[in-house]
Design a protein around this nucleic acid. Structure first.
Length: 558
RNA sequence: GCGCCUGUAGCUCAGUAGGAUAGAGCAACGGCCUUCUAAGCCGUGUGCCAGAGGUUCGAAUCCUCUCAGGCGCACCA
């Protein structure tokens, strides 16, 4: 258990005991136990922890907050605890000041746990499915996928650090309408390249990559499929190009530092009969009905304002239908305890109906959540540039990584909470200037490595390691920041907000840089020097751990 | 028209499930390298928390309404 958990648990216990005693002795009368919530005050003078219980109780006890606070404090037994002093302040806050040594425990924790410092077993024994990107395999990935990639991959890492057994999953949309369009587009290009005059479909994929695929294909196979019946030919072309695209997507994502455990094919849901059986289940439950020749899901029974089509009048299931079957498979066949998807804001309308459908087939929809990320706006020369895959003008993920680098791309896309509308200023990102916060964090790490390289032979092994020699305010601030790391991971997981980790690394780097300027490590006093080396080693470890979660490198030299 | 997200310093954004005097970075200005990496540090000031009501000891945070922007509201995905 980490130092902060220990302290918080201890204070809560002391509070609970005091409350119970004051009730037993009839000083206070309460009916329901209040929430014993601890907060960390912004102001230093208010102590490390603070509670507002006294202000929650006046109604129940018919006493003033001040009186309640004084009573409780009177009953608190702090012997042998981390608490140094308790003060009542303001309208009735009870503030706890800790003994000036608690921060050193964080350093001990780090020294013992090393690369595992920050991990917890909160979700031990539970499985977690993280589905993200799931870009259409009809073309290369664009910049919009980059944000989803960073959010999904890092959230998956965060979940793993809280104890979950994590599966990263890519859902391949290799069935349905857009594959038909893909086939039509390939087919026309194939025939055009071989000299036929055919009009390009109005809503087809116009990107050059389609033409390139067919050039390559003709190079390999020639014109032998020209005489084939059109559907059969399209099938062959799609198979060829899909395989090519998926290989490329996989390769590009690995460049981006993302490795999937499962590539799940939508088509496999048709092949296995999962779609059919899911539909049967919905029908049996009375949640599906026929109208105008189509089969509908009764989404209105689950709070939606309209129903949704499952099977079109032409007999082809919708994407929605496949999605229900897919998520049923996640929960009921593969039995994940938690499933999270990352979707762009343009899909948010889909969330409620999918949750409704999952509830209908017997899944506890509370285990399913979608992180909605606001779409990325690309700025070039200060102007908004629209991305459109159809028009083939998209900035490809790989272009971005080439220009900005993997570290900056991942860091940047995870800098703001998924909720925030995000402007990606390409010109600024290309600059690789110090404006880019990733350098700030990496620089802190490189600085530490540099000191440690020079210190190795100077540290006196015979001298005792005495943390209590660390007494400067910059040292305490750094220690406190280190002690917060495990909390940050837990909060990031609970709120499904991986960007907290990115911001934490900046805070940690800042605390270190301040320390660096205020305190020298390489000094005469061998005991203090040893303590400071221990402090920067702990910092180095936590920067490595946090950057590791982000998938950003921690360079030893810069 | 209905739904979701957003609105906090000149700009980009935090604000820890309702707390105490509203916080960073960038930009501006002024300091700090004969000593461990100046890609750094320290200091200076800036706010009708979009607006109006409400809930209570207490609201940037919760509720209602209004305004502004983004995104949805297909037998597309």
């Amino acid at each position: 258990m980490y130092i902060r958990e220990k302290i918080e648990e201890q204070i809560k216990e002391i509070m609970a005991n005091a409350l119970n005693k004051s009730v037993e002795e009839g000083v206070l009368s309460i009916e329901t136990m209040p929430d014993l919530f601890l907060e960390m005050p912004r102001e230093k003078e208010h102590g490390e922890y603070s509670t507002n219980v006294a202000m929650q109780l006046p109604r129940q006890t018919k006493k003033s907050p001040r009186f309640i606070a004084e009573t409780l404090v009177g009953y608190m037994e702090t012997e042998g605890s981390y608490i140094d002093a308790i003060e009542i302040a303001g309208p009735g806050f009870i503030n706890f000041k800790l003994k000036k040594t608690w921060q050193y425990s964080a350093l001990k924790d780090i020294a013992v746990l090393k690369e595992n410092y920050g991990r917890s077993d909160k979700n031990k024994g539970k499985t977690f499915n993280m589905e993200f990107i799931s870009a259409n395999p009809t073309g290369p990935m664009h910049m919009g996928n980059a944000r989803g990639g960073a959010i999904g991959d890092i959230l998956a890492a965060v979940a793993g650090w809280t104890g979950y057994e994590v599966t990263r999953e890519f859902y391949i949309n290799d069935a349905g309408n857009q594959i038909v369009k893909f086939g039509d587009s390939l087919d026309v290009r194939y025939r055009q390249l071989l000299g036929e005059t055919v009009d390009f479909p109005k809503d087809g994929y116009q990107g050059d990559d389609i033409t390139e695929h067919m050039k390559d294909f003709i190079g390999l196979k020639g014109d032998q499929y020209l005489t084939l019946e059109s559907d059969a030919r399209k099938k062959i072309l799609v198979e060829y190009a899909l395989e090519k695209n998926l290989t490329q997507i996989k390769k590009d994502l690995e460049t981006y530092g993302i490795y999937y455990d499962v590539w799940f094919s939508e088509q496999s849901l048709y092949d296995s009969g999962a779609i059919e059986s899911t539909l049967e289940l919905l029908k049996k439950g009375g949640y599906a009905f026929e109208e105008d020749g189509a089969v509908w899901f009764k989404a209105t029974s689950f709070g939606s304002d309209k129903d949704d089509v499952l099977i079109r009048a032409n007999g082809i299931p919708t994407y929605f239908m496949a999605d229900i079957a897919y998520h049923m498979d996640k929960f009921l066949n593969r039995k994940f305890d938690r499933c999270i998807n990352v979707w762009g804001a343009d899909h948010h309308g889909h969330v409620a109906r999918l949750k409704g459908a999952l509830t209908a087939v017997g899944v506890n929809a509370g285990q399913f959540d979608v992180v909605i990320m606001q779409l990325v706006r690309l700025l070039r020369n200060g102007e908004v540039a629209r991305m459109s895959k159809r028009q083939g003008k998209a900035i490809a993920l790989t272009d971005l990584i080439d220009e900005v680098g993997v570290d900056a791309t991942r860091f940047f896309f995870n800098l703001r909470s998924p909720d925030s509308h995000f402007d990606f200023d390409l010109d600024l990102a290309i600059e690789e200037s110090s404006d880019n916060p990733v350098f700030y964090v990496q620089y802190a790490h490189a600085r530490i490595c540099s000191i440690i390289r020079q210190m190795e032979e100077e540290v006196d092994k015979t001298v005792p390691l005495d943390y209590t020699r660390l007494t400067e305010k910059e040292e305490f601030h750094l220690l406190e920041t280190l002690s917060l790391f495990p909390n940050e991971i837990l909060i990031a997981e609970e709120r499904l907000d991986p960007s907290r980790i990115t911001r934490y690394t900046i805070e940690l780097a800042s605390a270190f840089h301040s320390f660096y300027n205020a305190c020298h490590v390489r000094i005469e006093d061998p005991i203090l020097m040893k303590a400071r080396v221990a402090l920067i080693e702990g910092t180095q470890q936590v920067i490595q751990n946090s950057l590791g979660i982000l998938g950003v490198s921690a360079p030893e030299r810069m």
